[in-house]
Design a protein around this nucleic acid. Structure first.
Length: 284
DNA sequence: GCGACAG
DNA sequence: ATCTTGTCGC
């Protein structure tokens, strides 16, 4: 009873702006920003960063504890098309590579990806309608069932509390969160500059968040990495996607970070997307 | 009108 | 997101 498909929420690039924002309000109303994850952050903790200097690790489907939760990182890369006939989208012919990496008990158990056309340009607040179909296709190509989705971008930190992590999480009815390198909207409780590793502060809704009362905690700034004596690193902005609270979202991201700015599932998905793109650009 | 604005 | 060399620091 908690796995109801919601095809009506699938991101459709042909929708009008009004339809898209209306869908986002529905999605936000359906989303649960409370804890229904099914496991503790410690159950998915990754202590050692993956070494990506020699390529990605080979998948080992049978390694580790088969009952541990499956964490899936998702990221995209883009292929610029050669068709310039539609002069206004700026994206005619462009395609998206969505890459997913499934991790269980600290090891990569599966990779998958999808290659799909891009039909609308990037618009802040409407990212799911540009990249959502591609992400869903990549998830469909995955054999294992995700217990947690780690998306590149915002979840509840969004004008209508329906960022891409929330959109995907609600459609698949799976727990999910978003990790963004920049803040889309909302206001940090405290200034975020020059903070030590491990520091965090709530992001509160401001008057640009149409669906929440000002002051509502919609996510956190989290300082995942910091150098002791060098140029300052910016924090990441983490927020609930679906079936997870803001507080648990930060704890999950902290558990999934292993020394780098981005959590391991995101690092791996990013590298996988680049690898798939390179294979396509070259020639298999 | 101007600035802000995930990927 | 993407186009890209050198450079600074651990």
């Amino acid at each position: 009873m908690s796995r109801t498909p919601r095809p009506e929420f699938r991101p459709d690039p042909s929708l009008s702006h009004e339809s898209m924002t209306a869908l986002q309000r529905e999605i936000a109303a359906t989303a649960r920003f409370t804890d229904a994850v099914g496991f503790d952050p410690g159950a998915v903790a990754i202590d050692e960063p993956f070494d990506l200097t020699t390529g990605l690790p080979d998948p080992t489907p049978n390694a580790g504890d088969p009952d541990a939760p499956v964490v899936v990182g998702i990221d995209q890369a883009f292929l610029t098309g050669g068709d310039d006939s539609g002069a206004n989208t700026g994206d005619a012919g462009d395609r998206a590579v969505s890459a997913v990496v499934a991790i269980r008990d600290g090891t990569v158990i599966e990779y998958a990806h999808a290659l799909t056309p891009l039909s609308i340009p990037y618009v802040p607040g409407l990212l799911a309608f540009r990249e959502g179909e591609s992400m869903l296709a990549a998830l469909d190509a995955l054999a294992v069932d995700p217990d947690l989705l780690v998306c590149d971008g915002s979840g509840r930190i969004h004008f209508r509390e329906a960022g891409i992590a929330t959109h995907i999480g609600v459609i698949r009815d799976v727990a999910g969160l978003g990790v963004a390198k920049g803040l889309l909207c909302g206001e940090p409780d405290e200034p975020v500059d020059e903070r030590p590793a491990g520091w965090r502060t709530p992001i509160r809704a401001d008057d640009t968040v149409e669906t929440a009362a000002a002051g509502t905690t919609i996510g956190h700034a989290y300082q995942s990495r910091q150098y002791p004596n060098s140029r300052w690193v910016n924090p990441v902005y983490v927020s609930p996607g679906h079936r997870v609270s803001a507080a648990t979202t930060v704890d999950l991201v902290a558990a999934l970070c292993a020394g780098y700015k981005l959590p391991e599932p995101t690092r791996l998905a990013d590298a996988h997307a680049d690898r798939v793109k390179r294979r396509l650009v070259d020639g298999d």
